[in-house]
Nucleic acid binder design. Structure first.
Lengths: 207, 207
DNA sequence: TTTTTGACGATACGAACGTATTGTGATTTC
DNA sequence: GAAATCACAATACGTTCGTATCGTCAAAAA
């Protein structure tokens, strides 16, 4: 039998190349040949690991989701209490505009596919719902003001964070401006919870 | 001399076909041939009106922006006072998720192009900045609470609206839920301004 | 009426696409 | 050590892309 390789790892290498291309040139720039070149392998190898282009894109969307999830989960790792966790989650999402431009851009490119492809759409929905549930729970555990409905407020916060991430991505404002906006809203929702001691982001940079 | 036709109108017809394809299949599905077929004209005619594919895409992004701007401007037409206008602007943006799925999806597809193509990027920035200025002005004129910075709050509201539009687009919640969220935030920002008498959207639908 | 001009269609062509096919080593099992 | 197996490269093939070119017809100007 032949050399034993980590099938999943090899697939991920190729997918990462695909995501890079997707962020640089859009979904249109993702071709088997380009992906192979970007990954530094032969075109044949891409075929060896993926049944076809659709398979490649499907896997890319999947890993894209995991990538963002990992990013958020990492930002939350050593958070103190639900309020701090919530803050870090939202910051992490906003920071995608600069920290993880590739996944974010690729995500946008995939969004149009999500409408046509039910499998990718399900992936989007699952991801969004998971974050929403998480934020709802954090909100409920953070001692929110009595007039806030955790479910609705979670939709608001998630929407706000996503919208701000796009603003950061397009350079309309900086991460720190976005972070300040998030903090401002959190302070309104969570009375008595001051801004967390450690800002996960880098020191302020003038726009 | 030959038959005189409205050059701009013919270009727009073709662009509309391109945008439809873009929303249905993503940017990858926009080919000269497909656009021609969708528009019901020959491939040669598309060439006749556009110097090349890049020209077509550029024009599409331009018209896309005008389309959304028209949509918002129409929603604002018979608004009463700055607070009501602001509310209608935000509602219009949120409603893009159902009313103008084509422009919204196409916009997402173009977003990745905006990073690479400086011309399209400038278009995005100009559009975003214009809306931001508008919202800032409306906010200042609406008698906002003393602790709100109109500029920052405008970024927040615009971000919120954009994020909610995506949520609506993906079916995470309904337009009415999103509208309620917007209203809730507006009430906090603009004390003393009750919800406008006429909700532009349809009656509540359970998710 | 003749000429001219541009709208528009049909076709041609090279490049690049996705995929199918084949070939070649290296490595593990027997 | 022979045989089987899989990672991986190379090539070939049919399709579709964007674009260039040519042809045609109608209408305005002469």
């Amino acid at each position: 039998m032949p050399k034993k390789v980590d099938h999943a790892a090899r697939r991920e290498e190729i997918v990462q190349a695909a995501l890079r291309l997707c962020a640089r040139d859009g979904l249109a720039g993702v071709t088997i040949g380009q992906v192979a070149q970007e990954a530094g392998v032969s075109k044949g190898l891409v075929q060896h690991y993926f049944a076809g282009k659709a398979d490649l894109l499907r896997a890319s969307a999947q890993i894209l989701r995991e990538e963002i999830e990992r990013h958020v989960r990492e930002a939350v790792r050593d958070a103190r209490g639900p309020a701090d966790t919530l803050r870090r989650v939202l910051f992490a999402i906003v920071e995608l505009g600069v920290t993880a431009v590739v996944p974010l851009l690729a995500g946008h490119a995939f969004l149009s596919m999500a409408v046509a492809d039910p499998e990718i759409r399900a992936l989007y929905r699952a991801g969004g719902d998971a974050v929403h549930r998480e934020i709802t729970a954090l909100l409920a555990a953070s001692g929110a003001a009595p007039d806030v409905d955790p479910g609705a407020e979670a939709h608001a916060l998630l929407g706000l964070a996503r919208g701000l991430a796009d603003g950061v991505l397009l350079g309309e404002f900086g991460v720190d401006d976005a972070a300040a906006i998030v903090d401002h809203h959190l302070r309104r929702i969570l009375p008595g919870v001051a801004a967390g001691p450690g800002t996960p982001s880098s020191p302020p940079v003038s726009e």
